[in-house]
C-alpha cells in the first residue's frame, strides 16, 4: 500500500506534506524507544510514536522510514518540524492512541 492511501484510509493528518506520497509501505512499528526503532523498524516502515522532539527525525532519516505517525494529537515541536523539512521526513498525526492506530493500520493489511 502506498503512503497516501494509508493516510486517507486511516484518517491521518498530514503535518508537513509528503516527501513521497507514492512510497510503498513495507511495514509498521510502534515504539517510543529510539534504539528499539533503530533495531527493529525497517526501511520504508511507518513508525508510530508519541515522541515529538527533534531527535526522532534523525532516526527516521537514518532508517529511511516512510513516515512518522504521531499519536494522541500531540503537539510537535517547532525544531522537529524544521528538521523534518531539512531531512525530508514525512510527519503524520492522529488523535488515536498507539494501540488504536496500530490496529487500524493492521486492518489496512499492513502486518
Amino acid at each position: 500500500m502506498k503512503l497516501k492511501e494509508l493516510t486517507e484510509k486511516c484518517g491521518l493528518e498530514t503535518v508537513n506534506g509528503f516527501a513521497d506520497e507514492n512510497k510503498e509501505i513495507a511495514g509498521a512499528y510502534s515504539s517510543d524507544l529510539l534504539s528499539d526503532v533503530i533495531a527493529n523498524a525497517k526501511k520504508d516502515f511507518v513508525w508510530i510514536t508519541l515522541q515529538t522532539h527533534l531527535n526522532i527525525i534523525a532516526v527516521a532519516a537514518l532508517k529511511e522510514l516512510a513516515a512518522i505517525i504521531i499519536v494522541n494529537n500531540k503537539e510537535i515541536d517547532k525544531d522537529t518540524l524544521q528538521k523534518a523539512e531539512e531531512e525530508k521526513v514525512t510527519l503524520l498525526r492522529t488523535g488515536l492512541n498507539t494501540f488504536q492506530i496500530s490496529g487500524k493500520i493492521y486492518e489496512c493489511g499492513i502486518h
Binding site: 524507544l33 529510539l34 534504539s35 533503530i38 533495531a39 510514536t49 515522541q51 522532539h53 531527535n55 526522532i56
Partner: peptide, 14 residues
C-alpha cells in the same frame, strides 16, 4: 525522550 533502552551498543555490535 526515548533514549535509554540499553540497546545502543548491542545495535552497533549487531
Amino acid at each position: 525522550m526515548g533514549f535509554g533502552a540499553g540497546m545502543g551498543l548491542p545495535n552497533i555490535k549487531n
